[in-house]
């Protein structure tokens, strides 16, 4: 399937850690304002794919990326301003990483790093992002508390608020619900439905049903291979293009 004017395009992407190949022959295009679900068992290369996109993989000793990755047609590996690239992408890790600072400072971190100093502007960003992450009501009165004092589910929403704080064009969620309860998960899913209007979303998930609920298209990764990518109803339907997809989605292996 060819996406017209893709927001993001991976071409012949290959990732190696030393001798070990983590991703190979990945060709994938993502449309603007689409939610792309990415499913696959542990070790398939889902996280690696996201880390290619924001170029944090290059900090890992021994990691090597070849192939071509473009955002809006521009090769990300030729961008000189890595920080600038990263500000266009919001990243949410599987386990919430509250920076050792207050709730407020966590959310204000990225704007501050980008040079925003005006208190009014920062206040506005903090409130907007916490509202978007469905956390504002719970922390409104304790913005000065350490971020790490919040509950697990609140911390995960804090990292989502943080990922939104630099108004990214692309939001990457890496198994965000792995450490939180189903109720919070559902709340965040509602949030994502709202956010898709403003950004393109990569939803890496360990819960295949989550992809089914939210994703426009779903990609299935297996041992570094992109087995199949297609409309979600097709991938989850009776006749996906690849037998392995059917088996995985229906829990025949896992």
């Amino acid at each position: 399937m060819v996406v017209q004017h893709p927001k993001i395009a991976f071409r012949d992407l290959k990732v190696r850690y030393g001798e070990k190949t983590a991703l190979e022959g990945i060709n994938l295009e993502v449309a603007k304002n689409e939610i792309l679900g990415i499913i696959g068992p542990a070790g398939s290369g889902k996280t690696s794919l996201l880390r290619v996109l924001n170029r944090t993989l290059q900090n890992t000793p021994g990691a090597k990326v070849t192939g071509d990755v473009r955002i809006d047609g521009e090769d990300i590996h030729r961008m000189r301003d890595v920080s600038g690239l990263r500000r266009r992408i919001g990243m949410v890790a599987p386990l919430p990483v509250g920076l050792p600072m207050s709730v407020y400072d966590n959310v204000a971190f990225a704007p501050r790093m980008a040079g925003v100093t005006d208190k009014k502007v920062l206040d506005g960003v903090v409130e907007r992002c916490l509202r978007q992450a469905a956390l504002w009501e719970e922390v409104e009165k304790r913005l000065g508390d350490l971020g790490t004092k919040l509950s697990g589910g609140q911390q995960q929403r804090l990292t989502i608020a943080r990922a939104l704080s630099h108004s990214p064009e692309i939001l990457c969620l890496d198994e965000f619900s792995i450490a939180i309860d189903p109720v919070t998960t559902m709340r965040i899913e509602e949030v994502l439905k709202e956010l898709r209007k403003h950004m393109t979303i990569f939803l890496v998930t360990n819960l295949v049903q989550q992809a089914r609920r939210l994703a426009d298209r779903t990609a299935f990764l297996l041992l570094g291979e992109l087995v199949e990518v297609g409309p979600t109803e097709e991938v989850f339907g009776r006749n996906p293009r690849d037998r392995r997809t059917f088996d995985y989605v229906h829990g025949i292996f896992g």
């Binding site: 924001n54 500000r87 990243m91 943080r162």
Partner: peptide, 8 residues
């Protein structure tokens, strides 16, 4: 990694 991912 979290801080760098936010563009620091």
């Amino acid at each position: 990694e979290a801080a760098e991912a936010m563009g620091a």
